[in-house]
Structures are given as C-alpha cells and as structure tokens.
Computed example of a mutant assay.
Amino acid sequence: RDWCEPSQRTIGNLISLLDAALPKDNETHTTLDNLFYEMKSGCKRVKSEDGITTLWEPSVLSRCDGLTPRDSNGIDVSEDFSLTCYEGFRHAATRETRTSIVTTLLLVLEAVEKEDAYGK
C-alpha cells in the first residue's frame, strides 16, 4: 500500500506479487525476497553475465511518500509497514509452509479475479 499508486492496487498485481514469493528453480532467494532486500539495503542484487557473480546496483524503488531506499542507505524494518509484515512472514514459517500459504492465496485470488471478469 505504501509502494504503489492506488491504480496499481489490483487483484492481478497482488497475484503477481504473491507469485514472486514462490521459490523458482532451487534459487536461494525468491523474487519477493529480492524486492524486500532492495527496500532494506537500498541496493538490488543483479547476476553478472557469467551468471555466478552478484553485482550491486542502486535501487530505483520509491515509496509513495517520496522515501527512496538508495538515498537513505536502506530502510529499517521498523520504519516500514510492509517490511515489518514481510519479516514476520519470512521468519514465522518454514519455506514449505510459506509456499503452501502463498499457493492457497493465489488460488483464492485467481478465483476472485475470474468472478470479477465474468461480472459475478
């Protein structure tokens, strides 16, 4: 809610965000992990051309109130509602449990999105 404009707050975008929380191809970090890392550090992880080395680039994220993590050397968890919620989610359950929760939410939201599309 603090990182996107009201017009971006759609079920489709929420589904995309939840999908980013699912592990892909045995990667250590999910796309969502990387997004929140970017908020916390002010830098984003980028794989180099060799696919092995991790490079660090300044984040382009900007919160709706104008706060940019790159300009403040990242944001402390206590300073951001979404970071606080994410950290609780990340530490509260195993990777498998998080995957199960996200998968269930995705199924429910996809059903809601279909109902909306058909005007029900």
Rank of each mutant, 00 (worst) to 15 (best):
D71A: 15
P69V: 09
I75A: 07
C85S: 11
F89D: 03
F89Q: 03
F36V: 12
G51L: 12
G51F: 10
D71W: 13
G74E: 06
S41C: 11
C64K: 11
A92Y: 03
L83W: 15
L55I: 01
M39G: 00
C64N: 13
L55A: 14
T97A: 10
V60W: 06
S100I: 04
T54I: 15
V102C: 01
S82T: 13
E96W: 05
P58H: 03
E57D: 08
P69R: 10
M39W: 04
S48A: 14
W56C: 02
D50V: 15
F81W: 13
L105V: 11
L106G: 10
G74W: 02
I101T: 06
T97H: 06
E79D: 07
R70I: 14
C43T: 09
R95N: 10
Y37F: 15
Y37T: 13
V46F: 04
F36Q: 07
M39T: 01
S41V: 14
Y37M: 11
R90Y: 06
G42V: 10
G74P: 00
G51Q: 09
D80G: 06
G42K: 02
R90D: 07
M39R: 06
N73W: 04
L83F: 15
A92E: 03
D50R: 08
Y86P: 00
V77K: 01
Y37W: 13
A93I: 04
C85G: 07
V77S: 09
S100N: 06
R70P: 00
L83P: 01
G74Y: 05
V60C: 08
R90V: 12
R98H: 09
G66V: 07
V77F: 02
G74D: 05
L105Y: 05
I52K: 09
L105M: 15
D65H: 02
R98G: 02
V60K: 11
R45P: 00
D76T: 01
L55H: 12
T53V: 11
T54R: 05
I52A: 12
L55K: 14
I75F: 07
R98F: 01
M39L: 11
L32C: 01
H29K: 07
R90H: 07
E87W: 07
L67F: 13
E96L: 13
E57P: 00
E79I: 04
T54N: 06
V77E: 09
S62L: 14
L83Q: 12
V77P: 00
K44C: 10
T99F: 10
Y37Q: 06
